[in-house]
Every structure is written in structure tokens, then in C-alpha cells.
Simulated assay, not measured.
Amino acid sequence: MLSSTEAALMLNYEVMGGPLADPSVWRGALLWAVALYVPLSAPLSTLESSLEESELPESVRQPVLVISSLLLSLATGVVTQLGFSWALGPGWASSLGVVAVGWSVLLILANTGKAD
């Protein structure tokens, strides 16, 4: 026989519990992934240069680079969001992610102005 808690979980179709079940954690993780994509470009450029030197065909190199860059930024975003969620709370961590995205855009625009 199911307890009332188990029956309620089955009715809500909750499969996953814990901090990753909160949608604000995933929204914040995506914000942090976007904000940290530019600083993560240094390791990705190293991967790109090693892929160019490899004997893989071009049709394989490009998907490997795209998938690895997306996974790296998403994993970094999730870890950052979970850390800030633990320290500040999920709402504040997501808000800080929005600020980080804005700051990254500002830095990119400032650097393009110096190139001229």
C-alpha cells in the first residue's frame, strides 16, 4: 500500500527531487552558462586547436566542438548556480546571473570599441 506522500508524488509526476528539481535553478544555470561562455572560450580555443591537429574529418570536428562547448558552459552554469543558490538562495542567484549576463555584454561591447 502506498503512503499518502508516495501517492501525492505519483499524482504530481515528480521523478526528481532535491535542488535540481527547482525550475529557478535551471533558469539561473542557463543565465550563468551564457554569462560564463566568454571566459570559458580560452579552454575551448585549446580544444579547437587540438582538434585541428587531429586526423578527424571536418564533419566530426565541428559537432565535437559545439557539443563540448555547450556541455562545458552548461556544467559550469549549473555548478555556479548551485553554489550561489546554497549561499544566497535560488532567487538571488538567478538575479545575480542576470547581472552577470549584462556585465558580460558590457565587457564585450567595451572590447569591440577598443579594437577600432
Rank of each mutant, 00 (worst) to 15 (best):
Q62K: 15
L51H: 02
T112C: 08
I108S: 10
E6C: 02
G89D: 04
A7R: 15
L44P: 01
Q81S: 04
S95P: 01
P90Y: 02
G18V: 05
S49Q: 15
M10P: 05
G97Q: 00
Q62W: 13
N111V: 11
S94L: 13
L47N: 03
L44M: 15
A110M: 13
S95Q: 13
L11P: 07
S95A: 15
W26P: 00
S94P: 00
P23T: 07
E48G: 11
A21Y: 04
L56F: 15
Q81D: 04
T112E: 14
V101L: 09
P63Q: 03
A75G: 14
L36E: 00
W92G: 07
K114T: 11
E6Y: 02
L106W: 14
A29N: 05
L47C: 05
P57V: 08
G97D: 00
T80D: 03
P43Y: 06
G97N: 05
S69F: 04
L88Y: 08
A110I: 10
S95V: 13
L9Y: 10
S49F: 08
E14H: 13
S73W: 00
V78I: 15
E53K: 14
G83N: 05
G77A: 03
P90G: 01
E55C: 04
Q62F: 10
A87F: 11
A35C: 07
E14G: 06
S59Q: 09
L109V: 14
N111D: 13
V38S: 07
A93K: 00
L31A: 04
P23V: 08
T46A: 13
Y13H: 15
W32P: 02
L56E: 06
V78H: 06
F84T: 05
G102K: 05
S69V: 04
S95F: 14
V15M: 13
V15C: 06
A7N: 10
S49Y: 09
R27I: 15
V34F: 07
P43A: 05
S24H: 01
L30N: 02
E52M: 12
L65Y: 06
R27F: 12
Q81A: 07
L72D: 01
S54E: 12
L71W: 08
V101A: 05
L88A: 06
P43T: 05
V99Q: 06
L109S: 11
Y13D: 15
W103C: 09
A110N: 09
S73N: 12
L9P: 00
A21N: 13
G18S: 09
A33P: 01
S41Q: 15
F84K: 00
V38L: 14
S69M: 02
P43E: 05
P23N: 05
P90I: 00
P90S: 08
V38G: 04
V78G: 03
L106S: 10
L11G: 09
W32L: 01
P19N: 09
L71T: 11
V64G: 02
